[in-house]
Design a protein around this nucleic acid. Structure first.
Length: 868
DNA sequence: ATACATACC
DNA sequence: TACTGGTATGTAT
């Protein structure tokens, strides 16, 4: 396989059309025979011709790449080697093996649901979808080569007895909801990927689980569920098992429909056998899968690893109804990655695989061996990503909120050539889209029309307006123009369409309605908090991960899937112990609690640093700090949450960092303003990542940190308004700075602004001169430029405010509130940040909250949208 | 900002 | 007969 290129000509069939047996359940098939049937069914079709064309384009890209490769000099390679080594070293240093990430994937989800509801289908090869396209197939059908994304008519040729069941999303969505309820018990912040898939961070759950009595780890067998087979079954013991999980779903006759607490005796007629699960990760995950099966009668597979990239691969390992854990040791990870085919990595798709194959790269070990070459042939983003993959690195935190960035509707149809029909169809699409937009309260400035002609050639035409639109008429006005233009361009010939779609993006906040204060107040209330936002919908978001990494050109670019934030520190102590779940508290409440705790422990606790308290505090400080810096530049733009949590913040810090602690130690490390630990690196990117990590961790755990979600929420929800309000309303930000709320918001705002600046403009100038630090709460400049000290100061200030707000109690101020306006703060930030090259950056980063503006009313993601 | 390509489910 | 639909993102222009 040295040459992926020739493969196209030689074989007689396109690589892009061939059976994709990459997925589970497709091992040991007669590939040749299957491919032959697929080819015969496709050959000559317009679809096939188009695929052929696309394949040639890919081949050209490969040829181009090979030419480039041929011109690479020894010198370049040498230099590249140094660069790669440097990067690898930094990445290695920040490797974080402390998290326990789980990827759960329902087995053949849609098909399984249909089979469950129609037992006759069991044992028959079946698939969900239509003659035109299949969504999934059961394992039986997979033996014939029938798989998702294959048109039904071809599947029928492969397997004449195939039963095709139409999709019923409403049903899948409902089942998905049940499964997610279980996910939430293990990680309230789990990240849904799709209806049947999610990433969970089990770290906190495991910690708590260690002290759980058996009763909490005992789960009942549902009468009709198929035994999982794993583990032993025991009869009820002491405690009453959790009842809530015993979902009655679908089992009408099942007695357990309602919690039968009464039956504490357990054994009853219902065949109440129980199973006690252990406290290990494997047991916890097995328990989760067991509960899913008991509740839905569907099985799931899971992967357990130190990061998402690996967890995802692992979940596929023992696919139907199994799980696989990769030990959290560097050695295990590296071994695992060595033999891992690149195509198994989420984000590396058909094209990327082919390009890599052309370079002789098929497994991740090859990636590691060819990094120099890859760094010269691919974009920075792309090779950095590949380097991470080769090192077995991936995202170590699960992020939830993602803001929707676009919304669209498209439809495939027979062939539409008449202008009137095209226009009316366009209008219909706009109507549907407007309706969806309305549901989520969105408005966007960019309207994109997508057209696919009968030859499968796709084209998109977009127009960005000066204002945001949302109604049918507004959208249609634009879409119609775009369509007409295309029709005119084709002039005498009609557009022979097979698909049309309309998309809206560049969302603008509609929040006007919610006054700033309102949200703040909301945060102070117990139930609301973040949950409100994200909660319901569960944001699914799609991980960015999916997007293909190496997408275009240089193949790879993509990078990040979600991972972006892979590295980082590990400081997050596990101690979290606290309540693991109470996501219900508001940011301030949590902050308050923490602070009290902190204060109590404070005296005694020293810098040990890692204590959870310490952690908490820091995170808060961080905020403050950011505020400070940011204030400097004030920029208004939208900064995404990600920006926020990510690096920018670093800048100032690092500057000092070196100074402050280096005293004794070497100057090889920087002090993290969040965890206060020294990070052994001088690379700002790495350091930024570390901080991101700390911040994100903080935000992930409700109990531990205050900054958490709330902060993000604040950021997202209020930021814009603020920006706007500041100008127009002038409501608060400046007004009373004493108010906690205001201060906080302000801080956030500033932060955002700053970030942006940092990100975009600032090159990297940054003087080492210690920046003057000004407390964002009391507005007073601080004498010390030691971040640790400064952080403590801010923390205390904030604390005062929090206490004041919450209880009216007041402690004596640490510093008298100053009158200085926040603006006074300006100071340029240093923002070194990406020391490395330009783009890399973290945009991808997992960013925490994604952010950006759009925010509309609530969480918008929502699954519904997804499948409508 | 626009267009196109890749990716994932 | 018949090759989806929704979303995100990387790149180049």
């Amino acid at each position: 396989m040295e040459n992926g290129v020739d493969n196209s000509k030689g074989e007689g069939f396109l690589s892009r059309m061939a059976l994709n047996d990459n997925k589970a359940g497709m091992e040991g098939l007669d590939r040749d025979k299957i491919n032959k049937i697929i080819m015969e069914s496709s050959k000559g079709s317009r679809f096939y011709e188009n695929e052929l064309k696309r394949e040639q384009q890919v081949n050209q890209r490969i040829e181009k790449m090979m030419l480039q490769k041929a011109q690479i000099t020894e010198q370049q390679l040498k230099k590249a080697h140094a660069e790669v080594e440097r990067m690898a070293t930094e990445l290695e240093r920040s490797r974080d093996l402390s998290r326990v990430i789980v990827h759960v994937d329902m087995d053949a989800f849609y098909a399984a649901v249909e089979i469950r509801d129609c037992p006759e289908l069991k044992d028959k090869p079946m698939a969900v979808g239509s003659m035109s396209m299949l969504s999934t197939s059961n394992y039986h059908a997979r033996k014939y080569g029938v798989r998702a994304a294959m048109p039904g008519f071809i599947a029928k040729k492969l397997c004449p007895n195939l039963v095709i069941v139409p999709t019923n999303f409403a049903k899948y969505r409902a089942v998905s909801g049940e499964v997610r309820e279980i996910f939430a018990e293990y990680d309230p912040h789990f990240q849904p990927v799709s209806l049947d898939e999610a990433y969970l961070d089990f770290t906190d759950h495991l910690e708590q689980r260690q002290s759980w009595p058996e009763s909490l780890r005992t789960h009942r067998f549902h009468a009709s569920s198929a035994a999982t087979g794993e583990g032993q079954i025991k009869l009820p013991q002491e405690a009453v098992p959790e009842e809530k999980d015993l979902s009655p779903v679908l089992f009408d006759n099942s007695p357990s429909s309602s919690p039968c607490l009464s039956g504490s005796e357990g054994v009853g007629a219902a065949g109440g056998a129980f199973e006690v699960f252990g406290t290990s990760v494997d047991e916890a995950v097995r328990e989760m899968r067991f509960r899913i099966e008991q509740k839905t009668m569907l099985t799931a597979s899971a992967g357990i690893a130190p990061n998402t990239m690996l967890a995802k691969v692992c979940s596929d390992k023992n696919k139907p109804n199994g799980q696989c854990r990769l030990p959290s040791t560097r050695e295990a990870v590296m071994d695992f990655v060595q033999n891992l085919p690149v195509r198994k990595v989420s984000g590396i798709g058909k094209v990327s695989e082919k390009m890599l194959n052309a370079l002789g790269i098929s497994s991740c070990s090859h990636l590691g061996q060819q990094m120099e070459l890859l760094s010269l042939l691919f974009s920075e983003t792309a090779w950095h990503h590949l380097l991470q993959v080769s090192l077995g690195l991936g995202s170590t935190f699960i992020h939830r909120h993602e803001e929707r960035k676009s919304m669209s509707t498209e439809r495939t149809f027979k062939e539409l050539s008449k202008v009137e029909e095209q226009l009316s169809l366009c209008r219909e699409l706009c109507e549907d889209l407007a309706e969806d937009m309305k549901k989520e309260g969105l408005k966007g400035k960019t309207v994109t029309l997508k057209l696919k002609n009968v030859n499968f050639e796709v084209k998109t035409r977009a127009l960005t307006l000066l204002y945001a639109v949302a109604t049918v008429d507004e959208i249609f006005a634009v879409a119609k123009d775009l369509l007409k233009t295309e029709i005119d361009n084709e002039s005498p010939q009609p557009l022979r369409l097979r698909l049309m779609g309309v998309r809206i993006s560049a969302f603008v906040s509609l929040d006007d309605k919610k006054p700033l204060q309102r949200s703040i107040i909301g945060f102070l209330q117990p139930g609301k908090t973040d949950s409100s936002g994200s909660s319901q919908g569960i944001n699914q978001k799609l991980d960015k991960a999916k997007t293909g990494p190496l997408a275009c050109l240089p193949l790879a670019q993509k990078c990040q899937r979600q991972e972006e934030v892979p590295w980082g520190s590990k400081q997050r102590g596990l101690e979290g112990g606290q309540t693991g779940d109470q996501p219900k508290q508001s940011f301030f409440q949590r902050a308050h609690a923490k602070r009290l705790q902190l204060q109590a422990a404070n005296a005694s606790t020293q810098e040990e640093g890692l204590g959870e308290n310490a952690f908490v505090i820091t995170s808060t400080d961080t905020c403050a700090q950011k505020g400070v810096e940011s204030s400097t530049t004030a920029n208004k733009s939208n900064c995404t949450a990600s920006d926020l949590s990510e690096n920018d913040f670093v800048s100032p810090v690092e500057a000092h960092a070196s100074t402050s602690d280096c005293g004794a130690t070497v100057s090889e490390s920087l002090t993290c303003p969040v965890c206060f630990r020294q990070v052994e690196t001088t690379n700002l990117n790495v350091f930024n990542r570390h901080i991101d990590q700390c911040l994100s961790e903080a935000s992930i755990k409700p109990n531990q940190c205050t900054v958490s979600d709330t902060e993000s929420d604040l950021d997202l929800e209020n930021h814009q308004k603020e920006c706007e309000e500041v100008e127009s309303n002038g409501v608060d930000p400046q007004e009373d700075q004493h108010s906690l709320e205001n201060d906080s918001l302000q801080t956030v705002l500033l932060i955002n602004g700053d970030n942006k600046t940092a990100t975009s403009s600032q090159p990297q100038s940054h003087n080492d001169k210690g920046p003057i630090l000004i407390c964002p709460v009391c507005q007073l400049s601080q004498d010390s430029d030691d971040l640790t000290i400064f952080n403590h100061h801010v923390d205390l200030c904030l604390n005062q405010e929090v206490l004041h707000e919450l209880g009216g109690q007041t402690l004596s101020p640490i510093n008298p509130p100053s009158v200085i306006n926040s603006k006074a703060l300006d100071r340029g930030r240093l923002l070194p940040t990406q020391a490395s090259k330009g783009k890399t950056k973290r945009r991808d980063s997992p960013s925490s909250p994604p952010s950006k503006k759009a925010k509309g009313l609530g969480p918008r993601n929502t699954i519904d949208k997804f499948f409508r």
